[in-house]
Write a protein that binds this DNA or RNA. Structure first.
Length: 418
DNA sequence: GAACAGGACTTCG
DNA sequence: CGAAGTCCTGTTC
């Protein structure tokens, strides 16, 4: 059956104007929702006339310049070292501005995506959102495998990123380093201001373990405690894994449900700004690959290999060959499925939406948008789609008859029009 | 006979 | 309990 489905998936894309009959809207995702906004008075300890506008423009100065190697008398712009002092001050200010801009961007993105600012605390769902966002921002081809926890992302080398995303892996890696650096710098500066007593307005008004983000005179603060900074530093040190250990670490992460789970997220900048998945749980439709218990464990190399192999999904379905992972199982050995029977709920509509939203030469061959704005799509190859669905669900017996039965249930429920 | 529709029931998380 | 899988029968082309 090659059919055109009109689904009422309102958030196929943020800009798409689509009907809202099926529970997939941005309201549910609470995109852009800021949990709490607090306005602070603007007072800064150290500023020059030349920089006053800049400071005013950014409101409270959340970062002091205690790291500066040159200091000014009484916080004025009358420097003992003359121009050099002003230059150094300006450098500090520019540095702070850049950092502040960076943090502001990151904060905005975190708010938009519902991510903890500490990438350490990202779940696989968070990682997926972040990767998707970066791919969108930088017009990158989305890697097939995006559901990777923050800890795993942080442990990945540039090479790993390139292996994961041959097109844009470098950019993803660089962006992640930027995020990480901003997070570390912010906490480093906070530590500095704590130690030096250089309390700024925001510092004074804001608990130390919060990120404050200036938004044109407003500072957004989330009343969520952050991790003790020393703990954070320790964990960042622990993140410096030797690349050779990455697979072992990866296995540990995937098999240890306690790490990188939501339990850590309460420490993030936006704290509980965790977006529900469309399915109502925090599992994603890709959870089949990562929402793993011990026996479902799949390592990073597997994911990367699958990515590199393009899942081997292309070509005639009768010859479909999913090349697994790092080793070839013997013939009598049960072959590990790249889609372990899992664990989380995988919804058909979410699966199809993924295929639609991430078209590529494999998936594009079986389902494509007819009119994204209207939410209409066409199933180009029903059997391929069923096969993919069967792979995803690890249902060897899946066929289009069964898949279409599920689709018909959607028609019946009205969330999905033939 | 293939494709499709839908009822009824089971399985799974 | 809801979503999906399975099996079945009926209809249409």
């Amino acid at each position: 059956m090659n059919e055109i489905g009109s689904c009422a998936w309102p958030s196929m894309s943020p800009d798409a104007q689509v009907k809202t009959e099926y529970p997939l809207d941005d309201e549910m995702f609470q995109v852009g929702k800021v949990q709490e906004i607090v306005t602070f008075n603007i007072t800064t300890d150290v500023k020059t006339e030349a920089n006053e506008d800049i400071y005013n423009g950014f409101g409270a100065n959340s970062f002091d310049s205690t790291n500066s190697s040159l200091t000014c008398e009484n916080g004025s712009n009358q420097c003992q070292n003359g121009n050099a002092c002003v230059d150094a001050q300006q450098m500090d200010i520019y540095r702070d501005l850049i950092l502040r801009h960076l943090i502001q961007d990151i904060s905005t993105t975190c708010a938009k995506l519902g991510l903890p600012t500490d990438a350490q605390n990202w779940t696989q769902e968070h990682g997926s959102r972040w990767i998707s966002e970066m791919c969108q921002q930088f017009s990158l081809t989305s890697p097939r495998q995006t559901y990777i926890s923050g800890r795993v992302l942080l442990s990945m080398s540039q090479k790993d990123f390139v292996a994961l995303a041959p097109e844009g892996g470098d950019t993803l890696y660089a962006q992640l380093q930027l995020w990480k650096t901003a997070f570390e710098s912010y906490h480093q500066q906070q530590n500095g201001s704590q130690n030096s007593g250089g309390i700024t307005a925001a510092d004074n008004s804001t608990p130390k373990n919060h990120w404050a983000m200036n938004t044109g005179g407003q500072t957004m603060v989330v009343d969520q405690p952050m991790k003790d900074t020393s703990t954070l530093r320790t964990e960042f040190v622990q993140q410096q894994y030797n690349t050779s250990d990455i697979h072992q670490q990866q296995r540990h992460y995937f098999s240890n449900g306690g790490i990188g789970n939501e339990a850590h997220d309460s420490h993030g900048f936006f704290g509980n700004g965790i977006l529900p998945s469309p399915s109502g749980s925090d599992r994603s439709s890709n959870a089949s690959m990562h929402d793993l218990g011990d026996e479902d464990c799949i390592d990073l190399q597997s994911m990367l290999q699958m990515q590199q192999d393009g899942m081997r999904f292309c070509g005639p379905m009768t010859n479909m060959n999913i090349t697994s992972v790092s080793q070839t199982p013997s013939a009598d050995e049960p072959r590990p499925s790249p889609f372990p029977r899992h664990s989380g709920t995988v919804h058909l509509w979410h699966f199809i939406r993924e295929l639609l939203d991430h078209p590529n030469k494999q998936y594009g061959s079986c389902v494509r948008w007819v009119d994204r704005d209207e939410g209409t799509f066409k199933i180009e190859s029903s059997h391929h789609l069923a096969r993919f669905w069967g792979q995803r669900k690890n249902r060897a017996q899946m066929n289009y008859d069964k898949l279409s039965r599920s689709l018909r249930q959607y028609y019946k429920k009205g969330g999905y029009l033939k």
